[in-house]
């Protein structure tokens, strides 16, 4: 990337200002005897070093698919059919499996939900942690173990010495989540993907884990893509917030602008749901949602059939993700106007 940036005359800090760049990413799932289903449609995002970008959307919006596609591991049987995932000057989608192995878990790591099922049930937690250091950092068994213990202390697991010898089924959900965070932070990665990492945890534990995650990310000055279904969390955790719907970014803005002046009708619906405000929710739900025809999302706006503001043009022309005010992008023909 630096060499490329210089060749086209970009100032060097500009190229350094992007930790991860996703361009025109498209992930499709094959459908038996039919057109493939598009899970991620021509998606662009960029994340700066040290930045936490929140990604909000309902189930099936493509959050996890995006997270895994960034690591070039889309959920089977999905396939990445177009796009670029630029990291450290290379396109991850063009790397060999061996090259990807060196990046996954070391430079880009992922915090997964439901971690008890994701850890190998037959291997003690400490060994699993240490093997990350052995594989990625070329540590010998002894120093890898020491690192693993250090990480368990860093994620504030009670009695880390004992937890090193514990098997995944012996951990509580919160502890397993901490272990997975420890694994993700082991190699001081420059980019972390947190996929619904705190869902299913107690609210108090959730707050602790988030605080810990933010602290460690800031300390290592990593960038993070923070995926969640809970729009409320993003309000005090993320620097920028993006809303994804049917594999497309609908709105992306700095946190203040996003919450003080949301512009997309879908964002309004999400906020109404979060605020438990039925009046607001009704206002942002079309009265005749069920009778609307299925819109071809290839040419029209993906949100048309649920949008109270939709008109004819929404069905025939896909709106662009346009910048309304500085840094605040909205994909809508009729966004809310604010001054």
């Amino acid at each position: 990337m630096p060499a490329f940036a210089q060749s086209i005359g970009l100032p060097p800090q500009n190229s350094a200002a992007v930790a991860l760049l996703v361009e025109r990413l498209r992930v499709e799932f094959p459908v038996l005897r039919g057109k493939p289903k598009v899970a991620i449609r021509d998606l662009d995002i960029s994340i700066r070093p040290g930045e936490i970008l929140g990604l909000v959307g309902e189930s099936g919006a493509g959050k996890t698919t995006l997270a895994r596609a960034i690591l070039n591991l889309p959920p089977a049987p999905g396939r990445i059919t177009a796009g670029v995932v630029q990291f450290d000057g290379v396109d991850l989608l063009r790397l060999s499996e061996g090259e990807l192995q060196r990046i996954r878990g070391r430079d880009i790591s992922m915090v997964v939900p439901n971690p008890r099922g994701e850890l190998n049930p037959l291997v003690p937690v400490g060994v699993q942690l240490a093997s990350i250091a052995q594989v990625h950092l070329d540590k010998d068994r002894h120093s890898a173990r020491a690192m693993a213990l250090e990480m368990l202390q860093a994620v504030q697991i009670p009695d880390p010495e004992r937890r090193m010898r514990a098997y995944p089924h012996e951990l509580s959900g919160g502890m397993a989540q901490r272990v997975v965070i420890a694994i993700a932070l082991m190699c001081s990665p420059r980019f972390i993907i947190s996929d619904d990492a705190t869902s299913g945890l107690d609210v108090t534990v959730q707050a602790q884990i988030l605080e810990l995650l933010r602290h460690l990310v800031r300390k290592q000055s990593s960038a993070m893509l923070f995926i969640t279904r809970d729009i409320g969390i993003t309000a005090h955790f993320c620097d920028r917030v993006a809303v994804i719907y049917r594999g497309e970014i609908m709105e992306i803005a700095p946190r203040e602008s996003f919450f003080l002046a949301p512009r997309h009708p879908y964002t309004m619906l999400l906020l109404a749901a979060f605020l438990h405000n039925p009046q607001l929710r009704r206002a942002w739900t079309p009265p005749d949602a069920s009778v609307r025809a299925n819109v071809d999302t290839e040419i029209g706006c993906a949100y048309t059939d649920r949008c109270p503001r939709a008109r004819k043009i929404c069905q025939t022309t896909k709106p662009l993700l346009a910048e309304r005010i500085s840094g605040h992008f909205v994909r809508c023909h009729f966004p809310l106007e604010r001054e």
Partner: peptide
Amino acid sequence: SDFSRYEVLCGMPRRLVVRH
């Protein structure tokens, strides 16, 4: 399984994933 997929996500070499 989830744990094999997770090991791949963590960049574990294929032979380790297979062994586990």
